[in-house]
Design a protein around this nucleic acid. Structure first.
Lengths: 176, 176
DNA sequence: CTGTACGTTTAGAATTTACTAAACGTAGTA
DNA sequence: TACTACGTTTAGTAAATTCTAAACGTACAG
């Protein structure tokens, strides 16, 4: 039984919306990416708004996030004031952008916060029950180690020129 | 200048709350984990409620999520009807649980959804403009490849007996 | 059987987030 | 100058989420 291509695109858009929400991004973000990803040509803001059913304003803000994450790219055409958007097709590239993004904001702050706590405990700047201080110092140090390991990993991935399938295979064999 | 240990614990709790929210988990979840993680002994539900400032009900539901993710463990004491919770200290273990958890729900559905779309395109079950069908088929296949790569990676990590520092180092050197 | 000490569930309040509609700013055009 | 075609920002709304307070169920103690 055959079905319309339009229906397939709609289902895909719905699917990406779900995933987007699941990973903590707005629902509309997934929908916008889906529409752009399935379009052979770069789309204008109004075209995206029409195809997703969102308003121009919403698309404007969401697509900025997508661009910041490197999932879409903005381009212009001579003699045309509109912006056009096309999807990034190298997803590993996108993953790197996302890791970089996430890393630089909250993750870094957390890492610093813990490090600072550890050092103030180390230099005896904290008053309190001695046994508990020792215990907490150990726990925080363990957490700090963990954060540092994650940080190194993310940095390594971020720094790779291309994290393509070949590199993923190398990682998988290292894990074996 | 010295400060109170209690204050340090409070700051840490606040910090983990932020991170929790950042990664799409409830704010209270981070707070609960922080409190449990800094406690030398396993804590009862009421103790956690008191130390976080949340109600018993909230702690009850949040801690179930934490347990499901493997971030805390529930234990009991003979002759005591209460449950006690202690923190998992092997964070790499926790990461595996979280990956497993996330993977099995939405991610898998997405993967299947895309695979199904590709195969219905492949077997000519979709009616529409032929050139567009070919284009979309290619895009979906690329996405499918990507999902499969991620899936393999997550599976590999999940299957590792222990993803400790030594393994992280192996990964890092493979990435170099 | 009744009372008590638990954990869980529920109904709803408070907050946050995602989104809409419309105003706004700007650059090009007549 | 005014007009048009854009993208952006804003004010407010709808919806989802996180949490509280209280009811509930259960198991053990007396």
């Amino acid at each position: 039984m055959t079905r319309k291509l339009a229906q397939l695109k709609l289902e895909f858009t719905e699917s990406l919306s779900q995933i987007s929400r699941f990973w903590g991004f707005p629902r509309g973000m997934g929908a916008i990416f889906a529409v752009v990803y399935l379009a052979p040509d770069a789309l204008s803001l109004d075209e995206i708004a029409e195809r997703t059913g969102l308003t121009k304003g919403a698309v404007s803000t969401e697509i900025r996030s997508l661009a910041r994450l490197g999932l879409v790219h903005r381009s212009t055409r001579l003699g045309d004031r509109r912006d056009f958007y096309k999807a990034e097709t190298d997803f590993f590239q996108s993953i790197r952008s996302i890791l970089k993004e996430r890393q630089t904001s909250e993750f870094d702050r957390a890492l610093k916060s813990v490090s600072q706590a550890v050092s103030s405990l180390d230099s005896g700047q904290v008053a309190g029950d001695q046994a508990e201080i020792l215990f907490i110092r150990e726990r925080l140090r363990a957490l700090q180690d963990f954060f540092n390991a994650i940080d190194s990993l993310a940095n390594a991935v971020t720094r790779l020129e291309t994290l393509g399938f070949s590199n993923v295979k190398r990682i998988l064999s290292a894990l074996k």
